[in-house]
């Protein structure tokens, strides 16, 4: 019988401390065939199991250009994520996926890209960023605007340093007012306002963003002011999910099931949605 809810077993090959209560796992499939054949597209997500506690949904934070493993990043906040957080290198957990649609990156060749992320909204965007950087010559200018509540809450600090150092990436980091530390060299302010300040050109450009629902709403406004057309603005929506395959009934925004018809949407689609997220 084809059991659509049966996870695959994966081994935690490495663990990275990203921020307080935030960790990344590098995961490899135990099954050799799957390890070699597993494919996914940027923007897709999976369900991750801590056996005995249940499943949680996160995006696949690594890029499909990096073969042989997948990475997820999560914050310890509930029962399942708490259980996952307690796992160690070499432990086994479960993975189901990949599910959902993806960013249409082939359509973006030759265009400038601006990435906007808030807090733990960076992981799904990171998959796109590395996909772009791994074939840098296919794309134009790359701008990344990333903010978190505090300096400590910024995730992927090593990679932020790396992006900062690259001369083919413009990285603008910000923290919410009050979240700065004495040595903080980045901006202070909320992501939408900082984005406007960057005055990134909308000419031949695509914007990709992820963050909390409230940030998404304000960033949409800011991008509008910068001249971005809604069809050139992409976001990935997250909602609570249990099945990931369009059956359990909780991720819908009005009549749209994020798991099946998303999680990637253009601003055109987001603006047509029921006010339910």
């Amino acid at each position: 019988m084809n059991n659509i809810y049966l996870p695959q077993l994966v081994t935690i090959e490495d663990i990275y401390e990203e921020a307080p209560d935030v960790r990344s796992f590098r995961l490899v499939f135990k099954d050799k065939f799957l390890r070699d054949s597993f494919e996914f597209k940027t923007g897709q997500f999976g369900l991750y199991s801590a056996f005995g506690l249940g499943e949680s949904t996160f995006c696949i934070a690594s890029s499909p250009t990096r073969k042989g493993y997948i990475q997820c990043t999560f914050r310890r906040s509930g029962r399942v994520t708490g259980g996952l957080y307690d796992l160690s290198i070499g432990d086994t957990m479960g993975f189901r996926g990949p599910y959902g649609n993806c960013f249409p990156m082939d359509e973006w060749k030759g265009k400038d890209l601006v990435f906007i992320a808030g807090g733990i909204g960076l992981p799904p965007v990171r998959s796109v960023i590395w996909n772009v950087l791994d074939r840098r010559e296919d794309f134009g200018k790359v701008t990344i605007v990333y903010g978190a509540k505090t300096v400590a809450d910024l995730v992927y600090k090593n990679e932020l340093e790396h992006w900062e150092a690259r001369n083919d990436v413009r990285l603008v980091q910000t923290v919410d007012p009050g979240g700065e530390t004495p040595g903080w060299k980045g901006k202070i302010g909320f992501v939408p306002a900082i984005l406007e300040e960057t005055a990134t050109s909308a000419e031949n450009a695509i914007a990709v963003m992820c963050g909390p629902p409230i940030m998404i709403k304000y960033v949409l406004n800011a991008l509008g002011k910068l001249g971005f057309a809604d069809e050139d603005v992409y976001t990935t929506l997250e909602n609570k999910m249990k099945c990931g395959v369009g059956k359990c009934g909780r991720c819908n925004v009005g009549d749209i099931y994020i798991c099946k018809e998303g999680p990637v949407y253009t601003a055109v689609e987001v603006k047509r949605m029921y006010n339910d997220f």
Binding site: S49, F51, G52, L53, G54, K242, C243, K247, C248, G249
Partner: peptide, 9 residues
């Protein structure tokens, strides 16, 4: 049709 998926251990 809504359902939850849970572990009991």
């Amino acid at each position: 049709h809504c359902f939850d998926i849970t572990d009991e251990a």
